[in-house]
Design a protein around this nucleic acid. Structure first.
Length: 427
RNA sequence: GGGUCAGUGCCCGAGUGGCCAAUGGGAUCUGGCUGUAAACCAGACGGCUUAGCCUACGGGGGUUCAAAUCCCUCCUGGCCCA
């Protein structure tokens, strides 16, 4: 299977500077890069597309470069952002890179045995923080006119607004990213940059710089966005809504699995294509299943299992799936101790003293202690609205919990809403 | 530096001395219906020792019985001028 055919099938290509680049990738031997923002100590679901893209490249015999934006992160990409983002400190970025580095290793082969396709992880802080201002203005800035820069869609929207402006810092961003491409081209013979469709503007500035500065041809490819049924971006946090992380301590494997299982029918086919490495036949079968028996959510389950396996390993994926089945199927109270613990293995847990429980604890208070609510008032509200369950049974208002609620003499499973779990263990 | 407009809860945005924990929309959350979906419907959405109290409308100070609303000052931002 040629990479080109696979990518066509999956719909992975949104725009290209030159269609022939897909043939070059199919033949292998190309060095290509994608940038990642080190804004958090972990990659999130929104990064998964690009991580998978790098992996696909590598599997086809190309060398993938993951470029951490340690330098650009100091500036902040304004592309399609409504307002300027807070700048990150050097220390914070360094800290974040530690986690991201580790996560990339689960998808890409960084070992020497990969030969010419060996993946690289670079940090643009290495050159962006040391290049001199005058060199930068002479070698990079002179290739671009402000006229063309302000015509970019990525900054246009900001220039058109009359309540916020665009700082020079942000405006310069595209040149920094272009400089990255030039550096990677000169130092690593990198000839292609990929990215999400929102990166098109920045990418083309890069290919242009490479051409103007070296006379060499360079390419750009963007991938489509994964959309939900309502047309919104999927799994991406523009204003702090969905934050699904690849780090198990930030988003448990169970939560990640649940998030994916819950994807709507419109997103399911795209998830299989973008985020998994399942073969075409399997994907087509799952598409068919979504059409004929959507209620079985086969595509969602398959995607969830594949993705959680890739991110957290097979055992975690299995646990997550069984936990889901137990939670939405059988009665939790009937599970034997080992199975019960298995189900809640990934859920956060807390301890409570037996003596305290013997006196009885107000449910709302326990909900707060379990961090299923941020305040007593909120906890009471959840209970009032019927959103709190103990051992899968809805709790009444004003109820007190005591030892009779314990499973196997020492466990209590608190749940808020559909799937926020918490295990209470009696110490 | 000068002029001018603006800064309200997660976001947008009403409110321009008391009836304001602050209209409305979005987001989010909970419940209902369902397929652990979408759409739709209902409710919630600062905190607390919850018929009450406390904290909040950029920061600080002031006027007043009473301020998100008036005054002073500082900070931040937009636009125009230098």
């Amino acid at each position: 299977m040629k990479l080109r055919d696979d990518w066509d099938f999956r719909g992975l290509v949104h725009q290209t500077t030159d269609d022939a680049v897909l043939d070059r990738l199919s033949n292998g031997g190309v060095t290509a890069y994608i940038g990642f923002d080190p804004t958090a100590p972990s990659l999130h679901l929104g990064n998964l597309m690009q991580v998978c893209t790098l992996r696909r490249l590598q599997l086809a015999g190309n060398r993938p470069i993951a470029l951490a934006g340690g330098g650009t992160g100091l500036v902040g990409d304004p592309s399609f952002k409504a307002v300027e983002r807070p700048l990150l400190t050097v220390e914070k970025i360094e800290e974040n890179l530690v986690g991201i580095r580790e996560q990339l290793g689960r998808f890409l082969d960084f070992s020497p045995s990969a030969g010419s396709a060996r993946a690289l992880l670079l940090n643009n802080a290495d050159w962006l923080t040391t290049v001199s201002l005058t060199d930068f203005l002479r070698d990079v800035g002179k290739h671009f006119t402000v006229n063309q820069m302000i015509a970019k869609d990525t900054v246009k929207s900001r220039l058109d607004r009359d309540d916020v402006g665009l700082s020079f810092t942000e405006f310069s961003y595209m040149l920094l990213q272009a400089y990255d491409f030039l550096r990677l081209h000169l130092d690593h013979d990198c000839t292609l940059q990929l990215g999400g469709s929102d990166q098109w503007g920045n990418i083309t500035v890069g290919t242009e710089l490479v051409r103007k500065a070296t006379g060499h041809h360079a390419d750009g490819v963007t991938t489509p966005l994964l959309l939900r049924a309502d047309g919104q971006k999927f799994g991406k946090s523009e204003s702090g809504n969905e934050n699904v992380w690849l780090d198990a301590s930030m988003t448990s494997p169970f939560a990640l699995h649940q998030f994916l299982v819950n994807a709507d029918d419109v997103a399911a086919p795209a998830m299989l294509r973008f985020f998994t490495f399942l073969d075409h036949e399997t994907i087509l079968e799952l598409d068919e299943a979504t059409r004929t028996v959507p209620q079985e959510r086969r595509a969602q389950r398959a995607a969830a299992n594949a993705i959680v396996t890739m991110v957290h390993g097979e055992a975690a994926a299995l646990r997550a799936e069984r936990a889901g089945e137990a939670l939405f199927g059988e009665s939790i109270a009937d599970l034997d101790e080992a199975t019960l613990l298995e189900v809640v293995a990934d859920a956060p847990s807390s301890r409570v003293a037996r003596s305290e429980l013997e006196h009885g604890i107000d449910t709302a208070e326990l909900v707060v202690r379990a961090e299923l609510a941020t305040s007593l008032g909120e906890a009471r509200r959840f209970i009032e609205q019927g959103g709190v369950y103990v051992n899968n049974v809805r709790v009444d208002e004003g109820a007190t919990l005591d030892v009779t609620a314990l499973l196997h003499g020492r466990y209590m499973i608190l749940r808020r809403g559909r799937r926020q779990l918490h295990l209470v263990v009696v110490a």
